[in-house]
Amino acid sequence: MIETNVDAMRPYKTLLRYAVMIFLAYIFAFPLLFMVMSSFKTENAMFADMYSLRAVLPVGDLMLDNYQNVFRKSNIELFFFNSVIITTLNVLLGLIVNSMAAFSMARLKWKGQEFVLIAIVSLLIVPFEAIAIPLLMLVAKLPWIAFEGGELVVQSSWLNTLHVQIIPGIANAFQIFLFYQFFRDIPKDFDEAAAIDGASPLRTFWSLIVPMSGPVFATATILAFLANWNNYLWPILTTQSESARPIMVGIQMFFSNNTDWGEIMAYSTLTTIPVFIVFIAFQKKFVASLAGTGIKG
């Protein structure tokens, strides 16, 4: 009799569980849905729908005018291109440099290894804001060789360039520590087997460690992508001319001279699309990496 009651309660429990999950999903998805749906509405329709479920539904007179105006009023193509270049190079170079640095500390033996590791880990507690000004003063005086008008020229500063937004961010203490933790837990037997087969440390890294470290590379990619794509402070400090500005500065510029919220939502939606793509592409491995980290803890 009791078992029958439990069975009878099961659908209600499932229903309740789904209701809670839908409610939570709505809370988390609301800002995103609101942004995307509002980008297809007029400002008046957006405000009129704000107090009902219509705010997150594709209802009313939908249009693409907001997107057309974004492209007409702003230089979004340039900012978008700059952001793609900066982020892609930063992520790729960062993955290579940081993973190799972590490999050398986790899998190789060399003098001063522990000291370097401690120094890198201690850098984790230094916020970027604390080093932004000294770094700015440094890059303002660093020379650079550029190719302009068919000839090589020496520039006296890194300011107002794309490379000033790429190079200082490549080496990243957090990424090194992330890779270090992962590499450390891979059994050393693999390295020994590879060494017996005559593999050099570099060969071991590329052919053995990297293929086994998909989750940590996915995690590092997502985190580095987000950090670079959303970077605002450093570009603001170092790019005073429009030609080198990334998308996050672009959206702030657009917001500065626009009061139409529909257009602002359209700009925001366009800005968010690459983040979505990267997250969806690496989602499975990202979750696997997080789950793995949890088990270790």
Binding site: I236, Q240, E242, M253, F255
Partner: peptide, 8 residues
């Protein structure tokens, strides 16, 4: 002229 975002 160079134009910069107002927010920052």
């Amino acid at each position: 002229v160079e134009k910069l975002p107002e927010g920052s």
